[in-house]
């Protein structure tokens, strides 16, 4: 048991990453404000960056830019950092698209609250009209 907790403690970045991931998903699923959902997505994506970067870290390592003057340096793993550059671009794209969708939804419904939208939609559908 002791060993379990000591390993958990040593792996604290992973714990943080997964906790943030859970918070992100919780935000997306439970908040009815559409903007908060988008923020949730960004928290979730951010947590994964932490996980990757932590995976590449070496104790005492420096940033992976080659220093020709010092051959004794340890460098951290450059690959996760490169991957996360890509990851950031992806999350920016997703955020942009969701914000655009929210704009559109606001134009249609006049609100950015998911529950409100649901209410309006069922009301309109009950009246047999189309939303435009």
């Amino acid at each position: 048991m002791g060993e379990f907790w000591s390993r958990i403690l040593q792996n604290y970045p992973y714990v943080f990453a997964l906790a943030l991931f859970a918070i992100g998903i919780y935000t997306i699923l439970t908040h009815s404000n559409l903007f908060k959902k988008v923020i949730g997505i960004n928290i979730m994506e951010g947590s994964i960056y932490i996980l990757f970067i932590a995976a590449g870290n070496v104790r005492g390592g420096v940033a992976p830019i080659l220093d020709m003057t010092d051959t004794t340096l340890t460098y951290v793993h450059p690959l996760p950092q490169a991957l996360m550059l890509t990851g950031i671009v992806v999350s920016v794209s997703v955020t942009a698209l969701s914000l655009a969708l929210i704009m559109k939804l606001y134009r249609f419904y006049g609100t950015v609250d998911a529950k409100e939208i649901m209410r309006i939609r069922t009301e309109v559908r009950a009246n047999g009209a189309r939303i435009s």
Partner: peptide, 14 residues
């Protein structure tokens, strides 16, 4: 590009 499909898209995207 009508209200229901944009709403469905948002749900799908999330």
């Amino acid at each position: 590009n009508d209200a229901t499909s944009v709403e469905a898209t948002f749900k799908y995207l999330m």
